[in-house]
C-alpha cells in the first residue's frame, strides 16, 4: 500500500515537472510566434526559465505580512492541486495522477482556489493597483466561470459521469467520438470561457501587462514572483490538459498531448493577436450574454441527446 502511494507520488512529481517544463516552453514558443507576427525575432526559448531563475537569485526581498508570503504559496498549491487530479495521458499508469470518481468538481474548485489565495496575498500588500487588479480579475473570473460551468454540466449530463478518466474513455475510438463533435455547443461555450481564462488580448485587462498597474502582482518580487511565474506556466498547461481531456478526446501519448494542447492554445493566441482589449465591464457583459446563452443551450442540447 505504502509502496504504491510512494510510486504514485513519484509519478505525479514526474508529471509535474514535465507539465511545468512544457508550460514554460510553450510560453516562450507563443511569445516567439507573436513576435514573428509583429515582425520581430522575439525572446529566446529559455527566456521564461531565465526570468524565474533571475527572480529567484534576487538578493533582497521585503514582506508585507503573513498573507503576502502565503499568496504565492496558495497560488502554486492551486496549480499543483489542479494538476494532481487530472489524468494527463489516458491509459498511462504513470500520468494518471490521483484521478478518481468525482475529480471533475475537485478540479473546478482547485482552479478557483489559486485565484483566491492570490487575491488574499495581493490584498495584503496594500498597493492600490493590486486591489484594482484583483477586483478586475475576480469579476472577470466570475463571469467566465459561468459559461465554463454550464459547459461542464452539459458534458456531465452527456456522459453521465463526474470522472475525467471516464469522460476521456467515452471519447476514445476515433475523432467522431470527441466532445467537440458530439456536443459542439458545450465546446463552443467552454472555448469562449477559455479565452477569458488564458488572459490573452480581448480579456487581458486584469493583467494589463506592461502598463501602469500590472495587475494583482504589483508588489510581488524576487522569489515570490518566481513562484508565481512558475505557477503561471504550470497552471496554463494544466488548463490546456483539462480542456483537451474534456472536449478534444484526451491523449494517449506525449506527442498527441503536445499537438492537441498546442492547437488549443493557438485558438487563444490567434484571437489574442487579432483583437484589441475589452474593458472589464465589457468583458463581463460579453461573458454574461453570448457564452452564457450558448452554455444554457448546451445543457438543453445534452438533454435532447439523452432523450432522443
Amino acid at each position: 500500500m505504502i509502496a504504491e502511494w510512494i510510486g504514485k507520488i513519484g509519478n505525479f512529481t514526474l508529471t509535474l515537472l514535465i507539465v511545468t517544463a512544457y508550460g514554460l516552453f510553450m510560453t516562450a514558443f507563443i511569445e516567439r510566434i507573436i513576435a514573428k507576427v509583429q515582425g520581430r525575432i522575439g525572446i529566446p526559448y529559455w527566456q521564461p526559465v531565465i526570468n524565474i531563475l533571475k527572480n529567484f537569485f534576487k538578493r533582497t526581498a521585503v514582506s508585507h505580512g503573513y498573507m503576502f508570503y502565503l499568496g504565492p504559496v496558495f497560488r502554486i498549491a492551486g496549480g499543483i492541486g489542479t494538476l494532481a487530479f487530472i489524468p494527463v495521458i489516458y491509459g498511462s499508469e504513470t500520468f494518471s495522477n490521483f484521478s478518481m470518481a468525482g475529480d471533475l468538481f475537485l478540479v473546478i474548485y482547485f482552479m478557483f482556489f489559486g485565484q483566491l489565495g492570490m487575491a488574499l496575498g495581493a490584498g495584503e500588500s496594500g498597493h492600490p493597483y493590486s486591489a484594482i487588479g484583483i477586483a478586475r480579475g475576480l469579476s472577470q473570473m466570475t463571469a467566465y466561470e459561468v459559461p465554463f460551468a454550464l459547459a461542464v454540466i452539459s458534458i456531465v449530463i452527456q456522459y453521465d459521469t463526474l470522472s475525467i478518466t471516464e469522460i476521456v474513455a467515452a471519447q476514445q475510438g476515433g475523432w467522431e467520438n470527441w466532445t467537440v463533435f458530439t456536443n459542439w455547443v458545450a465546446t463552443l461555450a467552454a472555448m469562449l470561457a477559455f479565452l477569458g481564462m488564458t488572459g490573452y488580448s480581448p480579456f487581458d485587462i486584469f493583467l494589463a501587462p506592461q502598463e501602469i498597474p500590472i495587475g494583482p502582482p504589483t508588489e510581488f518580487h524576487s522569489a515570490y514572483l518566481s513562484f508565481m511565474s512558475l505557477n503561471r506556466a504550470l497552471f496554463g498547461a494544466t488548463k490546456l490538459v483539462l480542456f483537451m481531456n474534456l472536449f478534444f478526446g484526451g491523449a494517449t501519448g506525449l506527442l498527441e498531448l503536445m499537438i492537441k494542447t498546442w492547437l488549443i492554445y493557438m485558438v487563444a493566441i490567434v484571437i489574442g493577436v487579432s483583437f484589441p482589449r475589452f474593458r472589464v465591464d465589457q468583458a463581463i457583459r460579453f461573458f454574461f450574454k453570448i457564452p452564457t446563452l450558448i452554455g444554457i443551450m448546451s445543457i438543453v442540447y445534452a438533454q435532447m441527446m439523452l432523450t432522443s
Binding site: 520581430r40 522575439g42 525572446i43 526570468n51 506592461q210 500590472i214 504589483t218 510581488f220
Partner: peptide, 18 residues
C-alpha cells in the same frame, strides 16, 4: 520590430519591485 530588445531578454516592468 526595428530594434527588438526582447532578443536580449529586455522587458518593461511598470513596477519598481520587479
Amino acid at each position: 520590430a526595428r530594434f527588438d530588445a526582447n532578443r536580449f531578454g529586455v522587458a518593461g516592468r511598470p513596477t519598481p519591485r520587479q
